[in-house]
Amino acid sequence: MRARRGDDRAKDGQAVAAHVALERGRVDPADEFTRLADRYLDTAYRLASVVLGDPTEAEDAAHDAAVLAWRRFGTLHDPDRFEQWFCRIVLNVCRDRLRHQRRHPVVELPSEDGERGGLQAPDRAGQLLARDALDRAFARLEPDHQIVVALRFYRDLTVDDIARRLDIPAGTVKSRLHHALRRLRTEMERQGWREETSDEA
């Protein structure tokens, strides 16, 4: 535990030294940005892929976010907060892309197994169908709600953490989570899924 604390202090010291060097103009901002972006690119890309549900879209979103981040790099006061700051930009880009997708929806072809509701399925197939149903339900959420759900259930962030990351009140996060989950439930039910398992004789 002591060693870990020592590592943390060393990292903090490095970060402070890097920050001071940046402030004093010894470090090229472009080099510093490239280093930080590369360090947190995995996190940003994975988060984008979860929110968008499409690796290709996530890749484009991460790149767009990097371009925006570089343009706004001068507004970042504390390089130690780069991850949060960058992820916020990524999420904003994701939100814009989701809104764009809503305005320009992609028509999905009907699946070969016809109506999903009422079909009996083995467990494996059931899981796939459940995921498919979740995909559909998740896609119907508002982009802001999708982001909150992803941060809460994928990144395991607390409500307060999400509020800080998105720079919104905690109450708004709770409200969005509540409405998002209710909407998910409704959408799942609309597709023939029930919350409880019941055996009828």
Binding site: L41, D42, A44, Y45, R46, S49, V50, G53, P55, A58, E59, A62, Q120, A121, G126, L129, A130, R131, A133, L134, A137, V149, A150, F153, Y154, D156, L181, L184, R185, M188, E189, G192, W193, R194, E195, E196, T197, S198, D199, E200
Partner: peptide, 28 residues
């Protein structure tokens, strides 16, 4: 008749987490 189990709701948060993690595309 067996109702399908939805992965929604407080008792099924793990399912939602699993579903979200399945969307994770991995490292950049």
């Amino acid at each position: 008749r067996r109702e399908r189990k939805a992965s929604i709701g407080a008792p099924a948060e793990k399912d939602l987490q699993a579903w979200l993690r399945a969307r994770d595309a991995g490292p950049a």
